[in-house]
Nucleic acid binder design. Structure first.
Lengths: 220, 220
DNA sequence: CAGCCGTTACGACTTTTGTCGTAATCCACC
DNA sequence: GGTGGATTACGACAAAAGTCGTAACGGCTG
């Protein structure tokens, strides 16, 4: 097994030194380089292709988020471990979206830091308990929200044909479009639509579209 | 610190015995009871109010998901640790939505099982690396999808007024409604809307609504 | 300061959407 | 075997949405 090569990116030399010393104590980890801002980080990644990048989120010049995006967009990208001061930072979700594999609290113990590097290196995600909870919360909220539940029960009231029509409406199609697609007259399409208005308790096709989105019938 | 009281729910007595023996080896954990199906589980929770319920997901009678929902809906609910055979089971997300705090693989080591109980007992979420990755993947997919990105750039082209109008449209309001709300004539509202059609590259208000949802301007 | 662009504003006209009354068809249940 | 409810179907009419031409106003720039 070869060494895990790590690139440190932080505009504070002290932080870099600290991390460097901590990582040096792990036999399987090697510091492959350092950078003090985002632009430099991208260049160093290109030059040294490390396994893991430890990236401060707040930096001058290109910020950590942009740098994370840039780095993870490269071919055969390294894993990015984001360095934050506070857990539950608002940046956390943005960082995940930017391609980060995990977070490192600046006050983390040496063991935690080393463990985090190993975790992301092997392809796992390293989240704090709080972040995980928040992520689950997001997910659950999106799926369990009461409006969605109500929407789902109503959905059962629709016939097959009506569901087809609703789906088409929710894609922004005109009645004429839908009629052509389903081989109906426009008049019939309208009947179907009006019936769904009553069943779903809405008054126009925009509200029908909103319903379709809330129920998960169609998705963004 | 008092003992962590655990209720075991599995229709296989052997599994219950195994778990019971493993948990007995932890000084801070005590098995408060056992149940062999969902209905019984709900009754035992009510009777013994445990801190943690270890719940098999596949059971006769009331299944584990329904039981999880029932249990977490109670007042001062216990944490539910779901017992699954395979990681990345499809049930995983349903279980989270049902209120589970974590998952336990049936092949987990005794230490892992004990650690999981302690983790959920203190309010943290216990996910396997694979599940966490999947969850993050979901989240990232929802936020980083290219359509959303395109939508966001177009959003910048709208004036303040236009954004107000679009938001109102995407809530299913009629032009007359919007005119009243913003103190405009209906004609003016129409002008604004038509202008946004051009800017956002859509042809009717349903598509405008779809845009608003995709861009995150309004959410379900 | 004149000219220009973008925003806000309006009304007349056209097109699309939505309502209503009506009817044929199918299926379940008496 | 028929009766009633749900589904699918249509057209005529009313209402809303959308188009177009036009114009006032503010700010910015040459």
């Amino acid at each position: 097994m070869t060494q895990l090569r790590v690139l440190l990116v932080d505009d504070d030399p002290l932080v870099r030194t600290g991390l460097s010393m901590i990582l040096a104590s792990a036999a399987d980890i090697e510091v492959a380089g350092e950078a003090s801002d985002g632009d430099e980080a991208v260049a160093r990644v290109r030059a040294t292709s490390p396994d893991v990048v430890i990236m401060d989120i707040r930096m001058r010049r290109m910020d950590g988020l942009a740098a994370t995006r840039a780095v993870t967009a490269m071919a055969d990208p390294p894993k990015v471990l984001v360095l934050t001061t506070y857990d539950l930072d608002e940046y956390v979700f943005d960082a995940l979206a930017a391609g980060a594999s995990g977070f490192l609290l600046k006050e983390g113990s040496p063991q935690e830091i080393i463990a985090a590097v190993r975790t992301v290196a092997k392809g796992d995600v390293m989240l704090s308990p709080g972040t995980t909870r928040k992520l689950v919360g997001h997910f659950v909220a999106a799926r369990a929200n009461p409006r969605r539940q109500r929407a789902l029960t109503k959905l059962g009231a629709l016939s097959e044909r009506e569901r087809e029509v609703v789906t088409a409406v929710a894609q922004g199609k005109s009645n004429a479009d839908i009629a052509g697609e389903l081989f109906l007259s426009e008049a019939t399409v309208k009947t179907h639509i009006t019936r769904t208005f009553a069943k779903l308790d809405v008054t126009n096709r925009v509200q029908l579209t909103i319903f379709a989105y809330e129920s998960g019938m169609v998705t963004p």
